[in-house]
Amino acid sequence: MNLHDAPWQREVGPGWDVVLVPEQVAHRAVVALGALSTNPVGAVFAIHGVWGFFLPPESDIPPWPARVQYLRSGSQVTLPPSCWTRDQSGSGSGWVRSRSDGHLLTPPLMLHPIVAALCCPRGGRRPIRALGCSREDITVKPPPPAVGPGRDEARADADALRSLAVALDVHEAEVPGTADAFRTFFDSP
Rank of each mutant, 00 (worst) to 15 (best):
G13N: 05
S73N: 02
I61N: 09
P22C: 01
V31G: 03
P108V: 01
G42R: 09
A29K: 04
A26M: 07
A117L: 00
L20G: 10
G34D: 08
S100P: 10
R72E: 14
A35G: 10
P14A: 11
G42M: 01
P107D: 15
R86G: 05
T38G: 02
W51M: 14
S75A: 12
T85D: 08
I128A: 07
H112P: 06
E58R: 12
F53I: 03
E23R: 04
V12M: 09
V19E: 06
L79T: 11
Q69D: 15
R129N: 09
E58D: 15
G92Q: 10
S59A: 13
R99C: 10
P80D: 09
C119I: 06
S100M: 10
T106E: 01
W95L: 03
V12F: 07
G123K: 00
N39D: 14
E11K: 01
S82Y: 11
G15H: 07
G92R: 07
P81H: 08
R125F: 04
R126N: 08
F54S: 05
P127Q: 09
D17L: 06
Q9M: 14
F53P: 01
W51L: 11
A46F: 02
C119H: 07
R10Y: 08
R99E: 14
D87A: 15
V19F: 05
P56L: 07
S75T: 07
L104M: 08
C119V: 07
V19P: 02
R86V: 15
H27R: 15
S93I: 09
P81Q: 06
T85W: 09
D17V: 03
T38K: 08
P113W: 05
P107M: 09
C83R: 15
V50P: 05
R86S: 03
G15L: 10
I61G: 01
E58H: 14
G90C: 00
W64Q: 04
S82Q: 13
D87N: 15
T85S: 02
I61R: 13
W8K: 12
L109C: 12
G49M: 04
L111V: 02
L33Q: 02
P40H: 12
T85N: 02
G42I: 03
W16A: 14
A26W: 01
V21F: 08
P7C: 00
D87P: 13
W84Q: 05
P80G: 04
D17I: 02
V21E: 04
Q88L: 14
S89M: 09
R126S: 13
P62D: 02
Q9C: 14
Q88G: 13
G34Q: 04
L104N: 00
P81G: 00
T85Y: 08
G124R: 13
Q24G: 03
R122N: 11
A116P: 03
I47M: 13
P81E: 08
R97P: 00
V21R: 01
V96H: 01
P22H: 01
R129P: 04
A130G: 08
L33D: 11
L20C: 07
P62V: 06
G123Y: 12
P62N: 09
G42P: 06
D101I: 05
I47F: 15
A130Q: 07
H27K: 15
R126P: 02
Q69M: 05
V18Q: 08
V19L: 06
E58A: 11
T38V: 06
C83Q: 15
P80L: 04
W8N: 13
P63S: 14
V19S: 02
H112L: 15
